[in-house]
Design a protein around this nucleic acid. Sequence first.
DNA 1: ACAACAAACAGGAAAAACCCTTTTTTTAAA
DNA 2: TTTAAAAAAAGGGTTTTTCCTGTTTGTTGT
Lengths: 216, 216
Amino acid sequence: MNKATSHNIVIVDDHSLFASSLEKLVNSFEGFNVLYHAKNGKDLQQKLKQYSEVPELILLDLNMPVIDGFETMQWLHENQKSIKVLALTMEDDERKILKMLSLGAKGYLLKDIHPDKLNEALVQTLEKGYYHSEKVAESLLHSLHSNDSEKPTFKEREIDFMKLACSEMTYKEIADKMNLSPKTIDGYRQDLFNKLDVKNRVGLVIYALKNDISKI
Amino acid sequence: MNKATSHNIVIVDDHSLFASSLEKLVNSFEGFNVLYHAKNGKDLQQKLKQYSEVPELILLDLNMPVIDGFETMQWLHENQKSIKVLALTMEDDERKILKMLSLGAKGYLLKDIHPDKLNEALVQTLEKGYYHSEKVAESLLHSLHSNDSEKPTFKEREIDFMKLACSEMTYKEIADKMNLSPKTIDGYRQDLFNKLDVKNRVGLVIYALKNDISKI
DNA sequence: ACAACAAACAGGAAAAACCCTTTTTTTAAA
DNA sequence: TTTAAAAAAAGGGTTTTTCCTGTTTGTTGT
């Protein structure tokens, strides 16, 4: 395979072991060549400036520190519209899929796909401009039927509170730690219970853990 | 590189994309050759029987369906003692590290390590019989200091109760569901708080989730 | 039948969580 | 500078949780 006809790919993933491995895999595909990989969105922005060669396609992981996949996608869509992006992630999360596609991603790949499918996805994205696996298409249809309300947004302080609520601290202790009156904390609690439609603190804790607001 | 002097490796990971990618990476290392990869513990057991060539080393992911990393490790330790195993996982969880090493793993690798470190780990494990990264060694020391007492045992009903406690139900509702008096539930609660050294229900919930008594 | 023991249950009370409404303070905008 | 909106705080009440110390019930072995 001569490089002239090769399609240049960039991989963005914070797990360098996976990124390096994936690079080998992509390089083994006929007609593809990995230019470099980036650890996160910030790193990607720098490297896009630094290197003269612009990739045709980016494989973008969603779960990254510093600048996550969504922000990176947004930035790419605004600043590097010519580069096609395929989102790459572990979880089959409807909201995330929708969000990425609405931000301009050309497709959404789950990390447990077969290597051949990845090859297919790369080829198809470059040829047709998009790739959608059966599984993802299914998820999308499902989400259209169950028109679940949008994921609520949280204020900085609410997130702080939720994290502390996922501990053995009483609300009074949380109030002390956040330098607020217990009554203010009670207000946060109430707002969150309503917003998240939970009945008590255990419900809040479970929500926070499910949505990676807090980790244990 | 001639195959005769090559060390045979097997990869066990349910994410076939990662497994395939990792295979390419390992094959690119001097002196290593990937025989095959398995999707889970069950698949591995079958393939070990099926193939005549026995690997020297297995790279074993922990988060797998069907038969998880721990069970697989146990089985390997009992049935294939000659094969060295390196655990491979995303999370840096002290308990999991300890558990795997106590089950006979030769080392514990985090998936975000640099490819060079992986190479080093493979070489060292085959030469010295073990590999421990600085990070893991650190975790181990930490856990030695905090000599946590043995994991307590639970009665059937206590486990039922813990699972229900990881929900928005009140204790009264839990009592109804378990066909017990609320006062009995209160007894379970109190015993568990003492046994697990937690202060309140949130502490209990977190314990149950951390120890896979309940899943969310 | 009876000791020995665990599981189930209970009374009572303080602490914490929960709920609804209203007021004060702070911040941002017109 | 007045005004509107958001954040913080509070009043005042109900319910649930938490804690302690018992008693009753059921099971098992001898």
